[in-house]
């Protein structure tokens, strides 16, 4: 394409103006994302012990991380947790969104808000509240089981903690996901339903054949966020650890393990390697997921 000097000048101006607008973001991006990432990577190439100095050993921390039962155990837990949690969360929020989309009573509006509210509650506060509710002595669960003469299970001890945490996270996030799906449903052209009804489709068929395919992008977005969030699981286990009777250990999730490695044991180099390794795990998992759903294109466009 031939370009005149005037066009080239216009191009330059557009480039300059465009960069000016994204400059603040670029700065923040460089300072708070790129720099820490590079710094974590740099740090992770050194080892440091209480009785040794800092030693340059580029692979040591990574070999250690990927053979460290604490890290691998944590990764196995968050991956397993995602595999169970995300489908459950997804089905619950999708089902509620479909119901709320179909009924438009005042009660439905109220219900929508109530289900969404937990999202506005900080995860720390939510976890502390659930800690109270789970308490076998003070919580309603203990009283409920007590009525029939049974001992309530403690939902945070080693054998129940999976379900106990799943309940908390679902409570916290299902409403948010539900709202996103609901918003997507509301954006569908209602004439599509009319046409389907004329063709003899019932409500269930409309929901499954028309609504569901049209909100797949919303579902995909949620799935990716849920996956990233769950792999980085930190706040709830960290708050509930002290009252979990040993059910939640310092290496319960990779993020928790990195935190204790850095701040209880002063091993910032190894903690950096753990953070970086976790980042790689997240990236790989998300990529595998996007590859499996073959929707990379539409999300990344």
């Amino acid at each position: 394409m031939p370009t005149s000097p005037a066009q080239r000048a216009a191009n330059r101006r557009r480039t300059l103006t465009g960069w000016m607008f994204i400059l603040p973001f670029t700065l923040v991006f460089l300072v708070f994302l790129v720099a820490p990432l590079l710094y974590a990577f740099y740090n992770s190439l050194f080892t440091k012990g209480l009785a040794t100095g800092t030693v340059f050993a580029p692979l040591d921390n990574y070999i250690k991380a990927f053979t460290d039962p604490s890290f691998l155990g944590g990764v196995a837990f968050v991956v397993g947790f995602s595999l169970v949690l995300i489908p459950v969360q997804m089905i619950i929020s999708l089902a509620i969104a479909l119901v709320l989309d179909a009924v438009t009573t005042r009660f439905a509006r109220f219900a929508r808000l109530m289900i969404f509210l937990p999202y506005a509650i900080p995860a720390v506060i939510g976890a502390i509240m659930w800690g109270f509710l789970y308490s076998p002595t003070f919580g309603p669960l203990g009283q409920l089981f007590g009525l029939v003469g049974l001992k309530a299970p403690f939902l945070l001890d080693a054998s129940h903690v999976f379900g106990g945490l799943m309940n908390i996270v679902t409570w916290q996030w299902a409403g948010y996901y539900m709202i996103i799906i609901y918003a997507a449903l509301q954006g569908i052209d209602p004439t599509l339903y009319e046409a389907a009804r004329i063709d003899g489709a019932n409500a269930r068929q409309i929901a499954l054949r028309i609504k569901l395919p049209l909100v797949t992008n919303a579902l995909l977005l949620i799935l990716v966020f849920a996956l990233i969030g769950t792999l980085q699981f930190f706040t709830e286990p960290s708050v509930l650890r002290t009252i979990s009777n040993g059910g939640i250990t310092q290496d319960f999730t990779p993020n928790l393990y990195a935190y204790f490695t850095a701040f209880s044991y002063a091993q910032f180099n190894y903690a950096s390697a753990l953070s970086f390794a976790l980042g790689v795990v997240v990236f790989v998992c998300v990529y595998i997921f996007l590859f499996l759903t073959r929707k990379r294109g539409s999300f990344l466009s």
Partner: peptide, 28 residues
């Protein structure tokens, strides 16, 4: 603005959505 470097920058940004932000806390 269809400026030069836009696509590269935007892909980087999308990659950033996927970086575990909590994993940045320690180096930060």
């Amino acid at each position: 603005f269809a400026f030069r470097g836009r696509n590269l920058m935007f892909s980087l940004l999308l990659g950033a959505v996927m970086v575990p932000l909590t994993a940045l806390v320690i180096p930060t």
